[in-house]
Design a protein around this nucleic acid. Structure first.
Lengths: 281, 281
DNA sequence: TTGCTATATGAAAATTATTTTCGTATTATG
DNA sequence: CATAATACGAAAATAATTTTCATATAGCAA
C-alpha cells in the first residue's frame, strides 16, 4: 500500500526526476489544489503534460491521480498551518503556544495509532497480577514515574516510585520474579535507565517500558515495550510532546486497571464513568 | 456548501426517494466502498443505474461523485467508533486508551482556542522579571508544579516548588512584591489553594494561576488567569485531560521564556542539554 | 566526435469514468 | 380518469485520466 499522504511523497522525493520534483513540491505546498482540481488543471499550472502528472502518481505508489486525491483529502481538513514554521520564526508567546499545542495534539494522534492492542492488554494483566510494581524514570521522566505511582497506589495496585537515581537503583535490585518494573525513558537509551534495566533483569522481574524509539536498547530488551510517536524533528520539542503521550498512556492503563478491578454487573459505560470519576485531582 | 461527510447525508435523508435512501444507507454503512470504487461498481452492487447515483450526489449537495469521494475520504481513515456512543463500549484496554486520547486531544484543541494572547505575554514578562518564582499545586496538581519547577530552573529562571502543603504555605508567606506565585488548581476553588493565594496576596507578590474555571475564586483573584478548557460533560472526567492542558501551557511558557532570554539563557540551556546528552549511550 | 542506449517528456489517441439527455414507468392529485 | 410531477434506467454525450507513441535529452563507450 502507498504510504500516508504527504509523508509518502517526501520519502520518494530523492528518486524523482526534474518535472516530478516540481510536481512533488507543488503537492507538498498546496495539497488542497490537488484534491480540488483535475489533472489537467494541475498540469497547466505546473506547465507540464497531463501524462507527466499521471505517471508521477504511479511512481510514488498510487494507482492513479484519483487515488492520490483520496490519500491527500484527509490531510487538508486540518491545515496545520503553524506546524511547518519553526518556533524561532516568531517569538510571540501565542505563536509558540500554538506550535506546542499542535505538536502535542499530533503526537497524541500518532501515539494512539501506534499503540499495540496486545501489548496494552499484557501490560494491564501484569499490573493487576504483580506482587509489587515499581515505576522508574530519570531526569524529566521521573515526574512521569511519580505521577504513575500516585495514580496506581490509589487504585490498590502495590505501586512504588522514588525521587532519585540512587534510590531507584537500590530498590530495583531487590525485586523478585513476581514483580514488575515499569520504566519511562524517552530516548530509550539513557545510561541510568539502561543500567537500571540490567539490574532489574537479573532479578527476574517482568519489565515494561514506554519509550519514543522502539529500536532503542531499552525498547528492545523489555518484556513489553509501549511507545510514543512524534513527528517533531527537534529533540527538545519531541521530548516535551512525548511526555504528554507517556502520561496519556499511563492514564489509559490506570483507567483500564480500575475497570478490571471493579468487574461487576455494571454496564460498561458506567464502568468507564466510575473509573474516571475515581481520578479527581 | 455541503455539510461534512456522513453527517450531511443524515441531514438530507428524510427528503430522499426510495433508491436514494438505498444509496444513503449503503454509504453510511460502507463509506470506504464509495471512496475506493467507481460510480458504476457502486451502482451495480446496489442494483441501480449510474445515473441515479450521480443524481444522488448532487441532491445531497456535492458537485458530483468525485466530490463525494473526497468528502468521505477523511472519515474512513479513523473509523471513529467512540463517537457513536452505543457502539460496544467494551473494557478492552485499547478502547479505553482511545477514549482517553481523544478526550485529551479535544481538551488541547479547546484550550488553545481559549488561550488569551495578552495574558500569555504578561505571564512571560512576569516570569522573566521576577526575583523569584514559586510554583504551587495541591494533590494531583503538585506534580504539575514540580514539573514546571524542573523546567524553569534549567532555563535560568529562579524557580522553586515544594512537595507538600505545609512547605508551600510557609514559603509563600516569605515572598516579596518582586516575586511571582504560580498556582495550579483545576477547580480553582480548593481550600488549600485558596488559603495559599490569600497568603501570597498579603506579601504583594504577583500571582498567576492556571485553572479550569475562569469564574472560580482563584481564577478571579489572581493578576493573570490562564485557563484550560474541556468539553467533558462529566466534571470529574475533566481532571485527567485538564492536567495535560496545564502541562502544555507550561511547555509553551517555558519555550517562550527560553527564546526571550536569547543568548544569555541559551548557553545555560545548552549546558544542561549537553549534560543530559552525555548521559546517553 | 559519433553512435548507442536509457530515460524523460509532451501531444494525441485510447480508455475509462461520470454526467446528461431522453423516454418510460410510477405515483400523486384534482 | 386524466394530468402533472417525479423517479428511474439506458444510452448518448461529455469529461477526465491513462496509455501509446514520437521526439528530445543526457550519459557513455568506442
Amino acid at each position: 500500500m502507498a504510504q500516508q499522504g504527504l509523508m509518502g511523497i517526501r520519502s520518494h522525493y530523492p528518486r524523482l526526476s526534474e518535472k516530478e520534483k516540481k510536481i512533488a513540491d507543488f503537492i507538498l505546498e498546496h495539497p488542497e489544489k490537488i484534491v480540488h482540481q483535475t489533472i489537467s488543471q494541475v498540469a497547466d499550472q505546473l506547465e507540464v503534460a497531463d501524462a507527466t502528472v499521471s505517471r508521477f502518481c504511479k511512481r510514488i505508489g498510487y494507482k492513479g491521480f484519483q487515488a492520490l486525491k483520496i490519500a491527500l483529502a484527509p490531510e487538508i481538513i486540518a491545515p496545520n498551518k503553524m506546524l511547518h514554521e519553526d518556533v524561532n520564526d516568531t517569538d510571540e508567546a501565542i505563536m509558540v503556544a500554538e506550535k506546542i499545542f499542535q505538536s502535542n495534539i499530533r503526537t497524541l494522534e500518532n501515539t494512539l495509532q501506534v499503540l499495540n492492542k496486545a501489548e496494552l492488554e499484557q501490560a494491564v494483566t501484569l499490573l493487576l497480577e504483580a506482587r509489587r510494581v515499581e515505576f522508574y524514570g530519570f531526569g524529566g521522566s521521573n515526574m512521569v514515574a511519580m505521577d504513575a505511582y500516585h495514580k496506581f497506589v490509589r487504585s490498590g495496585v502495590p505501586a512504588f516510585a522514588f525521587p532519585d537515581a540512587h534510590l531507584q537503583l537500590m530498590s530495583a535490585s531487590q525485586l523478585t520474579n513476581q514483580d514488575v518494573a515499569f520504566i519511562f525513558s524517552h530516548s530509550g537509551a539513557s545510561k541510568d535507565a539502561y543500567l537500571l534495566l540490567q539490574t532489574v533483569k537479573k532479578t527476574g522481574a517482568k519489565t515494561i517500558a514506554i519509550t519514543g524509539f522502539p529500536k532503542s536498547p531499552i525498547g528492545q530488551q523489555v518484556n513489553i515495550a509501549l511507545h510514543t510517536s512524534s513527528e517533531e524533528t527537534d529533540y527538545r520539542s519531541e521530548a516535551l510532546a512525548s511526555r504528554i503521550a507517556q502520561l496519556s498512556i499511563i492514564d489509559a492503563l490506570y483507567v483500564t486497571v480500575i475497570m478490571r478491578q471493579k468487574e461487576k454487573a455494571q454496564t460498561s459505560v458506567e464502568k468507564v464513568r466510575n473509573a474516571i470519576a475515581a481520578t479527581k485531582m
